[in-house]
Design a protein around this nucleic acid. Structure first.
Lengths: 350, 350
DNA sequence: AGAAAAATTGAAATCGCTTTGAATATCCGC
DNA sequence: GCGGATATTCAAAGCGATTTCAATTTTTCT
């Protein structure tokens, strides 16, 4: 079997107590013995048994996350995980992932994760305006950081990006260019970020006394395929949109395809601004034409949330952990002033 | 605090022993008391403390995975995780994820994961022909299932798809159509799957006595961007390829862009067969033109690997766990016979 | 009915680590 | 060179489950 504390202590001729303290950096152990202990531990490859330690200390050394299988499980998640895990690894904390298929399973999964004590805290993703999962975790007294925002009438820790501001600025820019029919391909209805984006969209329009047209707003998951269908049907409409706000780079890909298939050209016939979560394998700068984006690295968000989690575990009150990051608007080739539209042509032809 | 076994036992007027046995389905407890216990446990919301249980039983109830951050961390991973986690969840096993940035960190991460006893087994991804990580886990006596294959001269459990056969068939098909300059955009050199794919490619060519041209084979990560660059430079060559074998759907996207940017058309000027890991947000059928693929669901692979892990933990010898799945070749619009090429035109013009 | 067998239940040890409270060494000033 | 800090070290008591071995009931069989 592998070496345990007892063996190490025996080997050193010391008590478990002293060895344990030496390894954990307690002050009441002589410097020389600490060195001795550390050296021996390293040489013999001693590693404390995580469960035993946890049982004794009550801390699990892990952060929990529940991933909903099919639906919203995509590239966003892996990028986020990369950031989160990278930062947590520095503190020797790892990530316990539970995957679920249905929403019902999801609540159960949170309950299970909380009760098993395998995690010290959790991260909650794309919450709804009123999020039951957050409510549940709050009631269960499980520390958690929200990636997004929710209002359950309690003090919860959250990190979010300025979705509303981003979309408002993007919309305004398109309006400035002269666009009047701007489609918003938004996320699933009810999610806070989607609502915030819609709010930004509406704000930009209403501040110029322009009407909001329901036919130009859709809510769906961010996949290439769905976006393709939605954009396609929009482009077939009588008054087709002249510009698209795509909720993610995947969405942008789908819209792009629809535009091309309709025989139109992105950057001249139609404009687009996509939200870019910064995936290393989908670079807006390398697209053709290059894509204008509202940009905010989801990986950086992961890193920051890891830090907030650590603060939370260190005792900082949840109510004191609120952070909103701004979103950049990066203009590239996919945005341009709209062409004189069809009706004009029709008149001259008649 | 939350309810523990002792409390539950006290509440029921039974001993911890009996309660524990009742809950864990041991046969030596009277049916009536078992019902009583289960009922009370459910009503009071009792959940065993995972660490305590683990300490006592020695099983962690978790599977470990190490994800390399920046590089190969993408959509493949999340799909795979979805499958793996879904199946494992049925057995109340969860996934402990560690993320690392450098390769050096990676070995250390495996060592750490193994020593901490937080996981019962691990999954190892895209191994090299001789994989040090596999070697390490083997030496550490940590049970693991390889997603892919390696040869470390030991009995290891693995699951893989028939990469060689898939590429051989795809290449043969392109050859049948008349293509002679077929580019292979392969994965990172040294990874077993990439080597197998190359072997399949070579086999198809050599079985018709056709030469293999180094300029037509590249090795890189599977990202849209890299693929775009590679394809672009290939298309600028004197004898440009008339067909592409793309290592993944991301790669295909990049190649597609390069083709279009070169003023060529996919499905007529150039053909392509991409390997499709079946991402819900990138459907080959919905692309334009629809994409011919070699298809094998990475999510299904995850599910199957979960089962193999469970078998491994149940005591099945690693040497008895080998599984190779076939890969479908699905032909769609992106493949066609090559056009009569430039030189012909040149002659007639002179 | 009484002994042996089978079915249930319990007390206590154990898993490997942390930590409290007591014990022993080492240091200080005078 | 001695009493009282001050530093170090240790023995033993948890942490919350499982499990061994023994004790107690209940059944079964003559």
């Amino acid at each position: 079997m592998t070496m345990k504390l007892k063996d190490l202590a025996l080997h050193l001729g010391l008590s478990q107590t002293t060895v344990s303290r030496a390894l954990n950096g307690y002050p009441e152990v002589k410097e020389s013995t600490r060195i001795l202990v550390n050296e021996a531990a390293a040489r013999l490859g001693y590693r404390p048994n995580a469960s035993a330690r946890m049982l004794a200390t009550g801390r699990a050394g892990a952060i929990g996350m529940v991933l909903r299988g099919s639906e919203e499980f995509g590239p966003h998640t892996s990028e986020f995980l990369g950031g989160l895990g990278g930062r947590l690894a520095e503190e020797e904390v790892d990530i316990l992932v539970t995957t679920v298929d249905s929403y019902q399973d999801e609540l159960a999964a949170y309950r299970r994760a909380a009760a098993s004590r395998k995690v010290d805290a959790m991260v909650l993703h794309s919450p709804k305006l009123f999020d039951e999962r957050a409510q549940l975790l709050f009631d269960l007294k499980v520390p958690f950081v929200l990636h997004g925002r929710t209002d359950i009438g309690k003090e919860v820790a959250w990190f979010d990006i300025d979705n509303q501001g981003a979309v408002e600025r993007a919309t305004s820019h398109l309006l400035d260019l002269g666009h009047r029919r701007i489609a918003l391909l938004n996320g699933v209805k009810g999610r806070t970020f989607a609502e915030h984006r819609e709010a930004g969209y509406r704000l930009a329009l209403s501040s110029r006394d322009l009407p909001v047209e329901a036919a130009l707003m859709t809510n769906s998951t961010f996949t290439d395929e769905v976006a393709f269908r939605l954009a396609q049907s929009m482009l077939e409409q009588n008054h087709r949109p002249t510009a698209f706000l795509a909720g993610s780079m995947m969405t942008a890909l789908g819209v792009f395809r629809a535009i091309r298939q309709a025989g139109l050209e992105l950057g001249s016939d139609v404009s687009m601004i996509a939200h870019d979560d910064v995936f290393p394998y989908l670079n807006a700068d390398n697209m053709y034409p290059t894509m204008s984006t509202t940009r905010s690295s989801i990986r950086q968000a992961g890193i920051r949330i890891a830090e907030l989690l650590l603060q939370l575990l260190a005792g900082k009150p949840a109510g004191a952990i609120h952070e909103e990051w701004p979103v950049e608007l990066v203009l590239r080739q996919s945005t341009a002033a709209p062409r004189p539209i069809a009706p004009a042509k029709a008149y001259s032809a008649s």
